[in-house]
Design a protein around this nucleic acid. Structure first.
Lengths: 150, 150
DNA sequence: GAAAAAAGTAACTATCGGAGTTACAATAAC
DNA sequence: GTTATTGTAACTCCGATAGTTACTTTTTTC
């Protein structure tokens, strides 16, 4: 596996669900994301547990957004996913008694810690309504271009 | 694989090499890092290509540091390793035409970009002499504790 | 109450990259 | 020429997400 794209995918699903009439089934969401229903259920489980969405079984069932987009930040979603590991880079721990390893890990760990802080700050600064507005901007720009090309 | 610990390990090796009399063989370095000689050679190859160390074959051969520690930053070493991927988190690219995906990826990518900037800034701010000094501080502190415990 | 539509979930496979290992070639010192 | 050493290719191992299959459970609808 190269990347963990769950955050990106779940956000994608939530924005689509906001524009969606009524409930969206896992199957529908899977098509929107280019994946399948089981992956959608698995990934959305954390959001359901956190109370941002609910799911209903049976005919007419599916996923419902329980919250205005403006009240969910990217950070909230990241936490609801279980705060998965951010970095591919890590510290060696083969010689935990070695003071050189400790000094190196303190230095690298400090830089990684600052990077993680910056990431969390960045995720807290944006809510899903911001992303939805950006989507709308992109839609309008695209239709302008289409008209002018016609 | 969980983490890429090459940066941490190479730094560990370089600090040890600075305190080492003459050349250090891959075998010796492997023991210091808790790994084996082939992994050491593979990982150090980038540093050799970048000119920070050289390696000599044959009896009496091994690795030599070519540069004062103060002239190498953590960032330099990261680049010499080939600037490996920093994040385990990534963007979805299953629906590249989808404007929702684009908006989501712009938002998440922006946060990741700021985090990467913070990481690089942190890596540039520390050179290997800083790490070596921290190692010496740790050594002194430890021997004080040992004396006072005796 | 039977059929159908949906979620929930377990279990398995695919994939990807670092790490570990083995094997062997190339080189240099003595 | 023997030995110590690097250089490298080729393979296995591991861990995590992602994909897939199969089955159970729940709920609606007829």
């Amino acid at each position: 596996m190269r990347h963990d794209s769950r955050l990106s995918r779940v956000l994608h699903a939530l924005i689509h669900m906001d524009g969606h009439e009524g409930r969206a089934t896992s199957e529908t969401i899977g098509h929107m994301l280019g994946t399948n229903a089981v992956v959608v259920r698995r990934t959305m489980a954390g959001l359901r547990d956190a109370g941002y969405v609910c799911s209903d079984k049976g005919p007419g069932g599916g996923w419902t957004l329980l919250c205005p987009l403006a009240e969910i930040t990217l950070f909230d979603v990241y936490i609801a996913l279980g705060a998965p590991p951010v970095f591919a880079l890590g510290l060696a721990d083969d010689q935990p008694e070695c003071l050189v390893e400790q000094a190196v890990n303190a230095a690298v760990g400090d830089a990684l810690g600052k990077a993680a802080d910056a990431l969390m700050t960045g995720l807290k600064a944006v809510n899903l309504a911001d992303v939805a507005h950006d989507f709308e901007r992109r839609s309008k720009r695209l239709s302008r271009h289409r008209r002018s090309a016609a």
